[in-house]
Amino acid sequence: MSVLVDADTKLLVQGMTGKEGTFHTLRNRAYGTDVVAGVTPGKGGQDIEGIPVFDTVAEAVHATGANTSMIFVGPRFAAEAILESADAGIGLVACITEGIAARDMAEVHAYLEGTATTLVGPNCPGVISPGLANVGIIPGEVCVPGRVGFVSRSGTLVYQIVYELTSRGIGQSTCIGMGGDPVHGIGFIESLAMFEGDPDTDLMIMTGEIGGDDEERAASFIAERVAKPVVAYIAGFEAPVGKRMGHAGAIVTGSSGTAAAKAEALEAVGVQVARTPSEVARLVADRLAG
């Protein structure tokens, strides 16, 4: 099976009538995703190739039974779009929008804690369960159904690594692009927990990058709660060390945020850390064979 999105996904798209929104909505539908509605304030009553447009998410949910939302609304209004979906009872929101202010996301993050809504993103490529549903901008043509779960901070690395897996005949249960913004929805820990509980996922891949301490915290979680094998990749060993101003960042996390520190933390808990994207696919193949 899969996590987050599947054959039961009924997708509505906030910002569907924009150029990007329309393009990806139609791609998702062509992939087989059940796209039931679009929402653009002021454009209720129109349609895009047969997909009805509503003025509000609540109206769209009422009329179509949508349970998942994908957001292409511009950065100024995207945070509100997430809140609107949460208030309308949408279970899963994938926010593709890039450039949302961190303060807005901090409010959204705090608000969602009191709701049943799961957020993926923002600034992310979305989620695909190959063969079942594609919610976002991951190119479905590089994926095949299978039993490897994948979660990544970077979008293009998802495409690259999935492509290498597929080329070796290794399919995926679900690929999650969690996005790289400082304040975001589900991260490595939530994703790994879902894959751990998914009877149709045998192994998981996580790809991280420099900055923050998501990978270090994932390492502790893996040590305590994950029994399935995990293969990791970290990008940014050679990246220029970001100029740091204050000291508060390091005091808060106690971590340097470097790729080396992250790889070390993961290796310390028995996770195999690949050094190149192709090595990820190689390690996964070995692991599945062994």
Partner: peptide, 22 residues
């Protein structure tokens, strides 16, 4: 030159492993 920050970062790493510097 690459497309996507993650892929470009990864490219710098792979070039370094090949013994050169970006």
């Amino acid at each position: 030159i690459g497309n996507g920050a993650g892929l470009v970062m990864s490219t710098l790493d792979v070039v370094a492993r090949a013994g050169a510097k970006a």
